[in-house]
Nucleic acid binder design. Sequence first.
DNA 1: CAAATATATCACCTATTTGCGATAAACAAG
DNA 2: CTTGTTTATCGCAAATAGGTGATATATTTG
Lengths: 114, 114
Amino acid sequence: MFTISYRIFAIRNMKRSLETIEYKKDTEALAKFAKALGHPTRIAILKHLENQSCCFTGDLVEVFPLAQSTVSQHLKELKNAGLIQGELKPPKIKYCINQENWNIAKDLFQSFFD
Amino acid sequence: MFTISYRIFAIRNMKRSLETIEYKKDTEALAKFAKALGHPTRIAILKHLENQSCCFTGDLVEVFPLAQSTVSQHLKELKNAGLIQGELKPPKIKYCINQENWNIAKDLFQSFFD
DNA sequence: CAAATATATCACCTATTTGCGATAAACAAG
DNA sequence: CTTGTTTATCGCAAATAGGTGATATATTTG
């Protein structure tokens, strides 16, 4: 088991790099959008926004059996990914789909899948 | 700051549920695919497979500056998500896109984005 | 100013992800 | 059976994600 060939292999098998990898811009962008879509709650929020066109945080808290802070967190991630945007209607915040980035994401996924 | 109204709010603001949420089948499926796509290395692997149609683990280890075990992990996740499949060509393994699930994912994303 | 309302953020905990080196496993060839 | 080749898996550490209750912030209204 601990033969010489194993040792030789082990050396060849070692870490290739410590630097962070450089990917193409499109690859990074697609991965970022996909990551934001990678949770069922966030998919459901976006579907909800597509139907309603817009809605408030409170509406979503009523729809999902989650704490308000949890819903807020998911909205934050969607906003960071650029998929939604919030418009202040004090004291509420109206969230809508960010149509510009939505189209970018749509195109990225479309061309990715041929 | 610690007024009565805060206490009343705090109670209303508490956890809504401890059970796991039930989502629609499509929502779960889309989230699962998206999660698998949520890392640039995995996007790059899939793009590579789309070009080459198929390739071995070793080919990918040469393409990416990552340890062999790391590449293997990413392949495992893509396989678990159903996006790729491995065919044994001992001692190698030839990975290809799972066309059936690929089309399912494609349709899910397409109808999600309208 | 005080109270109410709506939302965000903090501190905390647990679970998952990402990466690695080392090792195991499967098989072909000598 | 031993060696070499290729890939998977294990064990670990660091980082990130997901959820919560508590608290902060901002604004309207009395």
